[in-house]
């Protein structure tokens, strides 16, 4: 049961991002989990309720997005959807495959509560919704905070 330790890491990361944006709280945390991450979504959800108490994420909800598990065969080149205990190529049966996706343990986005300095103007131009959705659709892997 390392989900509690993971939640504490997750909340520490959220706290760091909140501080960088002068936020007073976090309202929504979105994470992506792959079947090979070693983390179970229901356990993470329960641990989150314990870990968030007394933190900046106290009132936050946790949303978990499950990542599919797929591999590419390095022998025949085929892509397969697979299961965690059987990663073999579904076309030729080879075990020499590379993971395309399915091992993610990602904090994808955080919705922050920011005290508004002037009405209708976000405190930080980098945090407005247009920037966010553009980055989400680009699937950028890097943090911009």
């Amino acid at each position: 049961m390392h989900e509690l330790a993971l939640c504490q890491e997750l909340i520490a990361e959220v706290a760091r991002i909140a501080a960088a944006h002068d936020a007073v709280g976090a309202s929504r945390i979105l994470v992506t989990l792959g079947p090979l991450s070693g983390v179970e979504a229901p356990l993470l959800e329960r641990a989150f309720l314990v870990a968030r108490a007394g933190t900046i994420a106290e009132a936050a909800t946790l949303e978990i997005e499950q990542q599919p598990l797929s591999v590419r065969c390095t022998v025949c080149g085929a892509k397969s959807e697979v299961t965690p205990t059987n990663l073999l190529c579904r076309t030729c049966g080879a075990w020499k495959v590379e993971i395309l996706e399915g091992d993610a343990l990602l904090l994808k986005s955080v919705e922050l509560l920011v005290e508004t300095a002037a009405e209708g103007k976000p405190a930080d131009p980098n945090t407005n919704a247009e920037t966010t959705s553009a980055q989400l659709s680009n699937g950028l892997g890097e943090s911009h905070v």
């Binding site: 922050l112 920011v114 919704a129």
Partner: peptide, 21 residues
């Protein structure tokens, strides 16, 4: 969401949950 006092801003992160570790 509450207005006048605070507003919500979504921040894309894409960092490993275990980044610190």
């Amino acid at each position: 969401h509450v207005h006048g006092e605070s507003s919500r801003h979504s921040v894309a992160v894409f960092s490993d949950i275990l980044r610190r570790n």
